[in-house]
Design a binder for these strands. Structure first.
Lengths: 207, 207, 207, 207
DNA sequence: TATGAATGAGTATTCATTCAT
DNA sequence: TATGAATGAATACTCATTCAT
């Protein structure tokens, strides 16, 4: 048992260190942006040598991927929390969509991260099919409450899926616009447009 | 006349070479993506030494900017062409929005290019305020037909601007989804969703 | 004769252009210093293409050499002027030494230029033996009034030559010290030290 | 102890490698001169990739600065050694001045190095005020024995400082002359002139 | 598990010079 | 005489990654 316990403790310590590195990476990302988040910079922020990170992650891309993974986890938690507080299908739909929007509105670097790695999916090899499939899965699961609520409202599966895609698209489009400052061209506020969009969708489903 | 003609011919040749370099840059962009489009790579594709490009462009960023500029020009031409063929405000609105969408649907690298340089606007200094302001201007002008058509339909200025922003956002969001292959998650087609979105907007304005 | 006259005029024009380029080079040197005085920069200041300068000078080094040559000419003129105003051997000696010092005190870039090309003399090939010998000759001629005055005061040739070398060395040493700001370490003024040095030399010769 | 020993040995090895790079840099400096001493060239001479040097030095300028630092250290040691062997104030003054001269007479590249980095002090920002101030400090400390000896001889502080500056100036002036071969113009020997200069100064102080 | 050292490929840009026109 | 275009070599420096210790 003591040996076993030692092993378990070692694993826990290892897990902790991994997380400390990821936290450091997040900080670098937030402060320096995509371009500045080199492995060197992350290692330094974490108090490590670049070489040391390779004991915890296979490559820089793997580290990034894990960062995105955690980001998506946080996103899902955020959406789920909002949904759980709602008490009607309509409200669940609205809250899920708005929680999604707000999550990225508040931490724009997470959006950058998503764009960066999502784009990777286009390349022939991508980040590996497994990783790509996993990202898709996470995304689908996160947005699922929207489809669920729609179905509760009597909508067909097909239509529910469209709603998910539309909501995702509108939110990310508006966030992009807001995030790059371009939205000022139109003299409007992204959050307000998002609310309107969601209300319109609901109106259409329930009319 | 011979002297003049010589000068004129020289200018034309120079202009042509410039364009050949830009074409090479486009190809590199298409094949290698954002990261791979180094000055070296562009020069090689164009059959030049890196140093030679500096005779034609002030810097790598200047070359990129010109690439984007031409892309936006083509976008505007595409939208204008679609609008000119339409014969009613409703049709003009629809065709403008769909032309915008189709342009980027067909040449996804132009979307990347836009994202790349648009993002520059976020940095404190940006690529220079002038360039940033110019990008905004071009975008506003390109989407203007949408607002014009809406106003013809009796909509307030305020609402027309919202419509522009919403259309831009929805289109880019869907394109991002399509472009990265994520849209498959939802089992829907981006183009169809865009058409539906536009139709919904029109229905709302005209009901 | 018209042909001849045309040739002469052509030569004069050519000479003038050469000089305009050299003037431009001086300005660049003064404003940008040694490092900044690239051929490109000089050409631009002169209103030419870099390539055009090659019709007027064999190489960048040749242009620099000519610049130094003119600088030494101006130095000699400055010394000669001072000497011609003096009315005794002692005064000639003093004025020659001080004029030399003041020339470089006032235009430190000329000193830089001298250092730069003088140093070239060390390299195996140098700027070519001819050029090197010419520089030596110019320097000797410029300082000759010091030796002449010393001889007038009854000093041996040998001693007179020592005096020239010492004066040159002390002046350039002080100028270097002044020019790099190091003289502040000692809390003294270069010009005053130079005056003292000259007075000491004179005292020794005449005592 | 073994662990400690390992660390200590590692540090020693590291220090050694650093020094080997500096030695390589010195050689390049001696053979190729200022302009040729690029980071590439130094790395090659040391048997390294350019990138490897960045592990040992922060930048090319930092490497240069360390080279100069070691040179000044050697200079000071040389002067101190000479002074410690002298047994009277007059002798200390003479030996300090001549040791300074001889140091640079024997290794002219050290003089070049000094000129190169000293000149940095002229530029608005310099190599950083710290570095500049440090250079000044080292120089002052090195020449201090001259001032000390003069004060022992009953000279005022003010006059002692002048003597330091004059000695430095005369020595560097003569060295420049000798070093570039110009001194041949005057048919005299730099070392002899330096001895005479020092003797004259001593005569003046003690008469 | 972590480090120090090293690599090799890469970055944009500058330079003096050449040559056809 | 002058230009526009092009070259080839050079610059310092950064990057992700590897490996012996």
């Amino acid at each position: 048992m003591p040996a076993e316990g030692g092993t378990r403790r070692k694993k826990a310590v290892s897990e902790l260190k991994r997380q400390l590195i990821l936290d450091a990476a997040r900080r670098v990302f937030e402060n320096e942006g995509l371009e500045g988040a080199s492995l060197r910079a992350i290692a330094q922020e974490a108090g490590y040598t670049p070489a040391a990170l390779y004991f915890h992650f296979d490559s820089r891309e793997a580290l990034y991927a894990e960062l995105l993974s955690q980001s998506l986890e946080a996103l899902k938690a955020s959406v789920d929390r909002a949904v759980s507080k709602a008490d009607s299908p309509v409200d669940r739909l609205r809250q899920a969509a708005l929680a999604f929007f707000r999550f990225y509105e508040r931490s724009p670097r997470d959006l950058d991260l998503g764009f960066y790695l999502f784009r990777g999916g286009m390349t022939p090899e991508g980040l590996g099919r497994d990783r790509d499939a996993e990202l898709n899965q996470r995304l689908a699961v996160t947005l699922q409450p929207i489809a669920d609520a729609a179905i509760e409202l009597g909508v067909e599966m097909d239509q529910a899926r469209r709603l998910m895609a539309d909501t995702f698209a509108h939110a990310t489009g508006l966030l992009l616009l807001a995030h790059t400052g371009r939205i000022r061209i139109f003299g409007v506020a992204a959050a307000e447009l998002m609310r309107n969009f969601v209300d319109d969708q609901i109106a259409r489903l329930t009319e």
